[in-house]
Simulated scan of single mutants.
Amino acid sequence: MTRAHETVLTFTYPSERRARLVSDALAPEVDEIDDARSGATVDRDVAAVRVRVVADDLVALRAGVNSWSRLVAVAEHVSASGGE
């Protein structure tokens, strides 16, 4: 996925389990909220989750970063209430 603008958001968690829960919660959103001007990928490396947001222009990049930041916050909240 090549676009003119890109940012990578990295979220580090105290355990691999917590990172997996957040990553798994985000996975269904990949491709679902992409549009003609932006897209994102999510990957996990042990206890870190990375969200790569790419966009054709800075307005779309900002919108993508805001959307994914909110999705991560919700996933963190849900995973925290799950016992960790």
Rank of each mutant, 00 (worst) to 15 (best):
L9Y: 04
D56A: 13
S38V: 05
V49T: 02
M1A: 14
R18Y: 15
V72Q: 11
A73L: 12
G39Q: 06
G64W: 01
V54C: 15
G64C: 02
A73T: 05
A25L: 06
D24S: 08
A60F: 07
Y13W: 12
V54F: 09
T7P: 00
M1E: 15
H77E: 00
D31R: 07
S81M: 09
V54K: 11
T10S: 11
S23I: 00
V54R: 12
V72Y: 12
D24N: 10
D45W: 10
A80K: 07
I33H: 08
A48N: 01
S79M: 00
T2K: 12
N66M: 11
S69N: 06
V42Y: 12
R52D: 03
G39T: 15
V22F: 02
D43N: 03
G39P: 10
R70T: 14
S79A: 10
S38T: 01
R18K: 13
V49L: 04
A80S: 06
V51N: 06
D43S: 13
R50D: 14
L58C: 12
V30K: 04
V30A: 10
M1N: 12
I33A: 04
R44L: 15
S79N: 00
G64P: 01
V51G: 09
Y13Q: 05
A55I: 05
Y13T: 01
V59P: 03
R3M: 05
R3I: 05
V30S: 11
L61Q: 02
L71D: 08
A73F: 11
S23V: 00
P14S: 01
G83A: 03
S23W: 10
E76W: 12
D35H: 06
L21S: 14
E32F: 15
A4H: 05
E84R: 06
V65A: 04
R37N: 13
V8S: 09
E16S: 15
V8D: 05
L21M: 12
T41M: 03
V59T: 09
T12H: 07
T41F: 06
T7V: 09
A60D: 10
V54A: 14
A25Q: 02
E29H: 03
A40S: 08
R44P: 14
V51E: 06
D57N: 07
Y13N: 08
S69W: 01
E6W: 10
R50P: 08
L9C: 09
D31L: 04
P14A: 03
V46W: 12
L58E: 13
S15C: 10
R20V: 00
V22H: 03
A80F: 10
D35N: 08
R52L: 14
D57Q: 02
V46D: 15
V42A: 04
V30P: 03
R44N: 14
G82C: 14
E6I: 11
A75K: 00
V72S: 11
T7C: 09
A47P: 12
T12N: 07
R50S: 15
R62M: 08
T2M: 09
W68C: 13
L26Q: 08
D43M: 07
D31M: 05
T12A: 09
R37E: 13
V42R: 01
A36N: 00
